[in-house]
């Protein structure tokens, strides 16, 4: 069945440079620099990327950073905790907006 998401497209990501090669080059250079060892290790950055991938619900990123986390030595326990961090922030972000609801409701209620 044809779907919008095709796993093979992940490896074709560099083709996004067609018709805008300079912009793509800038992006991929930056991308590479972001994930290089720095104050955070490559393993830590991959775990953050995995958590963000779940927040933005990008199947390509989830595929790529699940593999990357394992290759950089993380285990399923750590990766599952990272996804719970996503969940806590996403859930917390919804819940904390409840304060707006409460503020408005309190303002217009007797």
């Amino acid at each position: 069945m044809e779907t919008y998401y095709n796993p093979a497209d992940l490896n074709r990501f560099p083709e996004i440079g067609k018709d805008a090669p300079q912009l793509a080059a800038k992006f991929f250079d930056y991308y590479g620099a972001v994930f290089a060892e720095g104050a955070l290790s490559e393993r830590e950055k991959a775990l953050i990327a995995l958590a963000v991938a779940h927040a933005v619900q990008c199947p390509y990123c989830i595929d790529a950073y699940t593999r990357s986390c394992l290759e950089k030595g993380s285990n399923l326990e750590e990766m599952t905790e990272a996804v719970h961090v996503t969940n806590a922030i996403r859930g917390g972000a919804s819940l904390v907006h409840g304060m707006q609801m409460r503020n408005i409701a309190e303002k217009i209620s007797m």
Partner: peptide, 17 residues
């Protein structure tokens, strides 16, 4: 050895962990 179809992490970092 990795426990799956992936390559090992950096030896130095793995040793440290």
């Amino acid at each position: 050895n990795p426990s799956g179809a992936f390559l090992p992490a950096s030896q130095a970092e793995t040793e440290q962990r």
